[in-house]
């Protein structure tokens, strides 16, 4: 029901809402982390520092549940960035939306965002959504998943080459295609799972908004639930990443 503002710049299709969301999420993450670590103190941590340390402990425990303790500290920064960025991203689309209504062709930077044909097809008006969670865009999630995908295989090759390569042919060489599919399925499921949860949440918010005033209690409940879902999905993405990394780099001697 909404169109996303896509502009063509130099042959690229840039989804402005996604870019805005990514930049805002990143900024919030960085500002939050920077504020929390502004006046670092060993003996008298500020409230924000305490909170951030709690997050660090939480992520540390999460990672430690997937791999040996000695390897945890290499991935603590990655886990923190993932959980923070995804959590903030998931919440970004919840509090409000920015939608513009267009009744005629809408152009931005010389490229058509909403064509006249589209307006004609949809009853003379079009809604352009400028504000959303970046994680409600599957292509953004795919970006995160690709980072994780490359990280898994790079770390596997670098730290555990022999066993990493051997595991494609385990338990029997016949399983090689299955293992390949598994490797591809991992990032895809990571991206799709996150996308589906967040996009569904935002879609439902948009739907509830159509109810008008009577929908307010329902909206409040759903937004609260969406915060929970956002936290769970951020946690899931992080722990699954760590599980995959752990599987690639840890070789247990039998």
């Amino acid at each position: 029901m909404h169109v996303f503002p896509v502009v063509q710049v130099g042959g690229f299709n840039l989804d402005l809402s996604s870019i805005l969301a990514i930049v805002v999420s990143g900024l919030i993450c960085f500002v939050l982390a920077k504020l929390a670590t502004r006046n670092l103190s060993i003996r008298n941590p500020s409230k924000l520092q305490n909170f951030m340390e709690w997050v660090v402990d939480f992520v540390h425990n999460t990672i430690a549940s997937t791999m040996p303790l000695s390897k945890v500290k290499h991935f603590l920064g990655l886990g923190m960035t993932l959980i923070l960025f995804i959590f903030v991203s998931n919440l970004l689309g919840l509090p409000f939306g920015i939608v513009t209504e267009h009744h005629e062709e809408f152009k931005l930077f010389g490229s058509t965002v909403v064509s006249q044909e589209y307006i004609d097809e949809h009853g003379g008006h079009a809604h352009v959504a400028w504000w959303k969670s970046p994680t409600a865009d599957i292509m953004v999630n795919l970006g995160l998943a690709v980072v994780v995908f490359f990280l898994i295989h790079f770390l596997g090759l670098k730290m555990n080459r022999k066993h990493y390569l051997a595991h494609y042919f385990k338990p029997f060489p016949v399983f090689f295609p299955l293992n390949l599919i598994e490797q591809v399925a991992r990032p895809v499921t990571l991206a799709v799972r996150l996308y589906a949860n967040i996009y569904a949440g935002e879609l439902l918010i948009a739907t509830i908004l159509l109810l008008g005033i009577p929908g307010i209690p329902l909206l409040a409940v759903w937004q609260g639930f969406s915060i929970f879902v956002g936290a769970v999905q951020a946690f899931l993405f992080t722990i699954l990443t760590m599980v995959y990394i752990s599987q690639a780099i840890v070789h247990e001697d039998h």
Binding site: F4, V6, F12, N13, L14, D15, S18, I19, I22, V23, G26, C29, F30, T81, F85, P134, D137, I138, M139, V140, N141, L142, G143, L144, V146, V147
Partner: peptide
């Protein structure tokens, strides 16, 4: 619609972050 540019931007943004 799917725009691979979003993926690239997400990757760059995430690595930078």
């Amino acid at each position: 619609s799917f725009h691979w540019e979003s993926t690239v931007i997400a990757i760059i943004a995430f690595v930078l972050l």
